[in-house]
Amino acid sequence: MQNSSKESITIAEEFIRETKKQEQRAIIMKLVPIVLLIALIIIFGSITPQFLTVSNLYSNILEQLSILLVTSMGTTFVILMGGIDLSTEGMVGFAGCFVGLLVQNSANDMNLGILGIIITILFSALIGAGIGLIHTKLRLPSFIITFSAGYIAQGLGVLTYKGIPAAILDEGIRNLYFHKIAGLPVLTWIAFVVFFIALFLEKKTAFGRYVFAIGDNEKIPVMSGVNVNKVKILVFVWTGICFGIAGIMGAAKLGTSQIYIGQDLLFPTLTAVVVGGTSMSGGQGGVVNTLIGVLIVTVLQNGMVMAGVPNELQKGVQGLIIISVIVLSRRRSRKQIVK
């Protein structure tokens, strides 16, 4: 070899050493969410003993996180892909209103029961497909299209009941909330099922791998002949399904079909995904990360009420913790242009 190769090893090796250091840092940062979760549980547990009871940790928190878990499962895939979904509130609200009118209710004579649920989920999936199509074919950024879709869905939802919410009389749906299996309402178990399906999709299917690849470096799957557009559309279909399910769960809890079902869901969903460790730029993270994120958000909320933190401070505390987690767990190069 050339006489400078000895020195060239040094430069190349330096480079490799730097990369290794960064990778070690990355591994540590991956642990931040779990550490935070444990820390929160310990802190809140010590402030309020009732926090640590089975009744709170199990029956309460798990029930409280159900809807959030379902919406987050959908949104995780969109963010993994490098996009973002802002349609959560409208879509979930719409699904809640829609299903209310299809099953036995006080406003009309429909009584479709489980068929109503299926139709609602299918319809939400369809809207998701529409969003995906517009995003890929018209090349509108996901930010814009989901934002608008959310508003449109919200409008449609409100139209369905025109100011007078229908009370849901279908026992099956109400029992999703009232009926308990092993101390948890049926809808919580459904949330777990959704989680496991998401896990399967992420880890066991080619689809899951493609989502990561697209988020990491879209050129490569395109070059490898993967139908990137199809994958993107499918991601939004999945999100639509998740939002549909979440809407039905919300309707079951409230007992009426109102647009409120979707209210205040967007920010916690995005927070859960990001805090859990799924990077906003895509290609990193996953549904297990999001599960941790959902737990963090719910535990934080629950713990603060338990601890009697004054209302005015709660939002501030939440914001602080979220920013800290994100700062700690992201690598930002100085030269990255942050918009």
Partner: peptide, 25 residues
């Protein structure tokens, strides 16, 4: 792709060969 395994990278785009449970791999 950094987040995929060696095998997943080698066979990227060719997962059909390893179908399991319908859509699983």
């Amino acid at each position: 792709i950094t987040n995929l395994t060696v095998a997943q990278n080698i066979y990227f785009g060719f997962e059909k060969k390893f179908r399991q449970f319908g859509i699983g791999v």
